[in-house]
Nucleic acid binder design. Sequence first.
DNA 1: TTGAAAGCGGTACCAC
DNA 2: GTGGTACCGCTTTCAA
Lengths: 333, 333
Amino acid sequence: MKDIAKDLGVSVVTVSKVLRNHSDIGEETRERVLKRVKELDYRPNLTAQSLVTGRTFLVGLIVPDLVHSFFAEVARFLSNALRQEGYYLVISSSEEDPSLEEREIDQLLGRNLDALIIASASASPAIFRRIEEQQTPFVLIDRQFPGFPANFVGVDDESVGRLATNHLIENGSKRIAHLRGPESTPGVQRLAGYKHALQNSGLKFNPAYLLSPGNVDVDSLQQGYSAMKKLLAIEPRPDGVFCYNDPLAIGAIDCILDAGLRVPGDIAVIGCGNLHFNTSLRVSLSSVNQHSRQIGECTAQLVLQMIKSKTPLPPRNIIVEAEVIARRSTLRS
Amino acid sequence: MKDIAKDLGVSVVTVSKVLRNHSDIGEETRERVLKRVKELDYRPNLTAQSLVTGRTFLVGLIVPDLVHSFFAEVARFLSNALRQEGYYLVISSSEEDPSLEEREIDQLLGRNLDALIIASASASPAIFRRIEEQQTPFVLIDRQFPGFPANFVGVDDESVGRLATNHLIENGSKRIAHLRGPESTPGVQRLAGYKHALQNSGLKFNPAYLLSPGNVDVDSLQQGYSAMKKLLAIEPRPDGVFCYNDPLAIGAIDCILDAGLRVPGDIAVIGCGNLHFNTSLRVSLSSVNQHSRQIGECTAQLVLQMIKSKTPLPPRNIIVEAEVIARRSTLRS
DNA sequence: TTGAAAGCGGTACCAC
DNA sequence: GTGGTACCGCTTTCAA
């Protein structure tokens, strides 16, 4: 920039103003500057710009697992939506480990990102108070904390659990098991929805049918397989299984088929997430759609709003409607 | 930092030195500074640090598509490996569009990232010369440009094509079709490997059996399905199909089954990428493993090396061995 | 319309 | 050991 100024015999201030199309600048001067900028293929140093303006045009994203398709899809839509406005995504995976998540948040806070988006693996919202202190706008996605007011975008997980369970009931299942998720809201709420649905239909909740496969967002296929194995050993055996996510469900189906049973004939199975490949599986998988696209795009809009508004906005709660996508794994027909 | 200095009656320089454990500092002073740092929960401003040191501890990653599992996996392993050294990944998707890729590269260059990692969607390496001029170290992954010396990490795609085709031949296929990829190296080389394998086995290459499904890294299931439909109309119909990637292969299998034919009985199918769900599909899918993990981790190591070495290193070519993972879709047994 | 000066939050160099 | 000073590359304020 200094060079340009020197070359043209103007000041750096002038150049700076031209680059940001500041109003008061001579038409002729502006042209000359622009011309030289092209010639030199000059690009302003965003780091320096950030230092003085306090804006980095960077948004952080922390998810429990990038390979889990749901988060990869959210990341993609987020990234695309933010790009339209010149923002970029800095990603980080917590590997479903709360302490790692905390370290990552600290790291990212030190980078003065314009906002943070977090699908938390933590049990408590303590860490988020730190973010608030730093004045960094942040949005929780997928998982939230009851009683902790914060911006949130996600589905209503109670209704996810209810829809899935009702769907199984409507298709003839009586003894419905649940492979539950972690202790975060989606896991807890889906479980709650599951119980409510049973209750409303006059079915009784059998604790033996409730399993916690462990680290479900990592290596879920395996987890689903072994959890299902345990369920098969129970007498009487369940005839329907609602799984916290699709990979778990796929693992469960593999186990059922390996045991010589039929899906959905003997046991119906439904998952959550509505992954791409669900239609191509051995038994195409019914699933509750979580609308990764809408979540990604809504979150992007919310984040941009927050960044642009100088005064902190009151926390918003954006809930995307869930819906059952029925396929072979539940349709006894 | 200024506050800390003032509070303690020392200079900012001293504080700065303590924070970076500079050798020459009084034991007592260091303790006092550290104490105050804790009290204030002070975190150095990385932006400012970057401006003066020229290092951002940020690495850019541009891929054609984040949802394509292969790249999501690479991103994950990369991100984890870089994190160990305090580096973060800034991601961007080119959506398989060369002009968008170029804009993204420009954007990221302006951010003074410490390095760039690119799975390019471009046909020509022109844009990369710009990166070289900027002195930003960069590594190409998955796709490279013949005759353009640059750091590269990926598989030997000619061998991928050869292995896959040979595998089909060994399992009894005589009329082997290929759903090819884009004009970038993986597409071109795998095609070359396919032709070589045919030749070496005395089979003749039939141009009618070669199809370009279009934008294969996006919405591949659909593309695979419709491409396969065309192949089925050919007389004589192929009895083996080598697909550029797994989603294409899955789409192809769906099409074959829908047409009332059997896999691998009537037509054997093999893909590339070895995705997670391949074992759970209607017909478990044979695939050439591209080792996303090794690619991610090797790339991370290479990038770190380049960043740390002050003198530019000669371009390296890291080739990861490909291997066939045989499953039902090709085993006629 | 233009530009000089101050400063964003740090680091490097070199004298004390 | 410690600290003064210049400076990284850009924006902001305000005077000319």
